[in-house]
């Protein structure tokens, strides 16, 4: 278990339904940010929760686990395209929901994130969208904290250059 970094650890008594109700909006948002697909994001999140549901008794930190799964699926082009194809099929039958479009500025920012190398994009989304501390991002992505910091730095610098942003005062 992590120290939590301000996040309540998932207790063993929590039901899957409680976990799902709490985490779904954040996970579908993460899928949206990383995939860029308004139609596929719900499907990607559902797939991650379905996998968690299947292994509910064996998953130690389901909040970490679903984020790991959805981060990987959302940045895997082939998986994402498959999810999108299924979501569009369901959309045709009126059984799925679609995200509204982002503003041009927000869409530009997340497009810049998605243009980063895969791991940098995941780190940026987990840090700035999901508000995860570095230690927890390292847990989610299965990497060292130093590596997360490196990806954060490189990703930030790239986006600052591409979007012509100002350096933050430190």
């Amino acid at each position: 278990m992590l120290d939590g970094g301000g996040y309540a650890a998932v207790g063993s008594s929590e039901t899957f339904e409680e976990f799902y109700a709490r985490e779904f909006p954040a996970v579908v948002g993460l899928a949206f940010a990383l995939s860029g697909s308004r139609t596929a994001s719900e499907d990607l999140a559902q797939e991650a929760f379905l996998a968690a549901h299947r292994d509910w008794d064996r998953v130690d930190r389901p909040d970490v686990w679903v984020r790991r799964v959805v981060s990987n699926m959302s940045t895997s082009m082939l998986r994402r395209r498959y999810a999108e194809a299924r979501a569009i099929t369901r959309l045709a039958f009126g059984t799925t929901m679609t995200m509204p479009e982002l503003s041009a500025d927000d869409a530009e920012f997340w497009a810049a994130v998605r243009s980063l190398p895969r791991r940098q994009a995941q780190v940026i989304a987990l840090r700035y969208l999901d508000d995860r501390p570095v230690a927890e991002i390292a847990e989610i992505l299965g990497t060292a904290e130093g590596t997360v910091k490196k990806h954060l730095h490189e990703g930030r610098q790239t986006i600052i250059r591409r979007l012509r942003l100002e350096e933050d005062a430190t």
Binding site: S103, D106, W110, I124, L129, L163
Partner: peptide, 19 residues
């Protein structure tokens, strides 16, 4: 960057809420 990222994160959260 921090200001822009906060705004962009809010955009995603609003989109999820609307959904």
């Amino acid at each position: 960057f921090d200001t822009r990222s906060r705004q962009a994160a809010q955009g995603i959260r609003r989109a999820v809420e609307v959904m």
